[in-house]
Each structure stands twice: as C-alpha cells, then as structure tokens.
C-alpha cells in the first residue's frame, strides 16, 4: 500500500462522486448522461489503476485491462440506447 495507490483510489472515488453531483444538478436527461458516461468511466479507470499498483501481479493487470475495455466499449452504447429511448418517448423536459 503505497501513497500512489491510495491517491489513485481517492481520485477515482471523487470522480464517481462528481458524476453523481452532476446527475443531481443538471437540468435535462441528455446533460445528465454527459456526467454519468464520462466521469464514471474515468473514475473506474483510476480505481482500477490503483488496484493494479497495489497488487502488482500479471493476472490482476490482465483482469483490470479487461474491465477497462468492457466499460469503455459499453458506456457510450448504453448512453446511445438511453438517448434513443428518451427521444422516442419524448419526455426530455425536466
């Protein structure tokens, strides 16, 4: 447990907290999706980097890389699907 690990874990949690504050403060669904898509993925990336620096083993690095690739491939697709739903049902006002 070095200082670098704890700082990375803390920064990742702070970015997830920022995403939830953005979910609370933005006014419409599309802007809320900006917050959850970008900041959450970046926070998870920082937390996984902290986990890799803590364990320092090859298999954990491979698993963390898999999780990062999954998250970064699926987060924009989920946002795309949700926004299509919002525009089809037409309830994007507040």
């Amino acid at each position: 447990m070095t200082a670098l690990t704890s700082i990375l874990l803390f920064l990742g949690s702070v970015f997830i907290l920022i995403a939830s504050i953005g979910l609370l403060r933005f006014r419409e669904s599309f802007s809320r999706m900006h917050a959850t898509t970008k900041a959450t993925s970046f926070g998870l990336l920082l937390i996984l980097a902290g986990v890799v620096f803590y364990f320092l083993s090859f298999i954990v690095a491979i698993k963390a890389l898999l999780v990062i690739v999954f998250v970064y491939l699926t987060a924009p697709l989920a946002a795309h699907s949700i926004s299509k739903t919002v525009r089809n049902t037409g309830k994007n006002k507040r």
């Binding site: 599309f30 999706m33 900006h34 898509t37 970008k38 993925s41 970064y72 491939l73 987060a75 924009p76 946002a79 795309h80 926004s83 299509k84 525009r87």
Partner: peptide, 14 residues
C-alpha cells in the same frame, strides 16, 4: 462514435 462520446462536451446520439 466512441471518442466522440468521450471528448469534452459532445455525446454521439444517432
């Protein structure tokens, strides 16, 4: 569409 969703201020829609 993946980098467009991740760059500042843009989100690819359709």
């Amino acid at each position: 569409s993946n980098p467009v969703s991740m760059t500042p201020g843009t989100l690819s829609q359709d």
